[in-house]
């Protein structure tokens, strides 16, 4: 299908999105834990959100990234309900059955109950959108601790392959996809992630090794006591380094995050 503006209505586009999502080999909200979806009945909303947050963080990354993009769009529809005439209440029953897979062999009554639950979960997903994707500081600290423990227990020393070093106030950042694959960036205790990315870009631009156009990269914290994580644009780099001294800092594009809005135009 090729795109001709005005030929396709909003409904056509919505149909295409719904067909795409329901055509995936597995549903976006993975089926393996279908019985563990938070049963929200009677729970306080805070607990419900916490449960959903943990659930989403346990999803595989491609699923989570796709879900993040979709929810961001749906959240915008909900936010602009004056214009879109739709809100989370009406979006939820439409997208609920597409995001979640109905377990097999349920009676009609159980199916209806399940659908109501899916709708409710979808409503929460849409309404609180990005809150579901944050890793809480406490959880992150626990995670780092357990990974560090695991590593020391196994007796391996990861520091040998560490490509990042901080000397006084400079940070070695690598960017494998760039012509200039690594460089040292000066940081202060106030430097945040998007400033590091900006500084990298500016140096590259100065020596003309990258074109002056699109730059949609993010800073990632890789290795050490964490697998990999895309840093928030406002993450304080010095703190991240102290929490994970043996991490590498890598600049590359991210599927869901964008620092574009924070880049200085000069």
């Amino acid at each position: 299908m090729y795109w001709i503006p005005d030929t396709y209505s909003t409904q056509d586009i919505a149909s295409a999105v719904k067909t795409l999502l329901s055509g995936f080999p597995v549903r976006l909200m993975t089926t393996e834990k279908v019985d563990e979806y938070p049963d929200m009945t009677g729970e306080l909303e805070g607990y419900q959100l916490k449960a959903l947050n943990l659930f989403i963080l346990s999803m595989s990354q491609p699923h989570r990234d796709t879900l993040h993009l979709l929810l961001r769009t749906l959240h915008m529809v909900d936010k602009n309900q004056g214009k879109s005439k739709m809100n989370a209440d009406t979006l939820a029953p439409i997208f609920g059955p597409i995001l979640f897979k109905m377990p097999d062999k349920l009676s009609q009554k159980d199916q209806e109950a399940k659908l109501t639950q899916f709708s409710y979960l979808t409503k929460m997903l849409i309404r609180f959108n990005s809150r579901h994707f944050y890793v809480k500081q406490k959880l992150l600290a626990q995670l780092r601790e357990s990974v560090a423990k695991e590593k020391s227990g196994a007796g391996s020393n990861d520091r040998g392959r560490n490509v990042m070093t901080v000397t006084a106030a400079s940070l070695l950042v690598s960017a494998p996809s760039m012509p200039k694959t690594s460089m040292s960036i000066k940081i202060t205790p106030d430097t945040v992630a998007y400033e590091v990315v900006d500084a990298y870009r500016d140096i590259c631009k100065k020596d003309g090794s990258i074109p002056n156009t699109s730059w949609k990269n993010c800073l990632f914290e890789v290795g050490g006591n964490i697998g990999e994580r895309c840093l928030d644009p406002f993450a304080i780099i010095m703190d991240v380094y102290q929490a994970n001294p043996s991490a590498e800092f890598v600049i590359r594009p991210s599927a869901v995050k964008s620092y574009t809005a924070f880049h200085s135009l000069g």
Partner: peptide, 18 residues
């Protein structure tokens, strides 16, 4: 519309904001 709130009527605190 549909009454999704039926599921957790007792503790519905913030949802009504939206």
């Amino acid at each position: 519309g549909i009454r999704l709130e039926d599921l957790h009527r007792k503790h519905d605190r913030r949802c009504c904001l939206a």
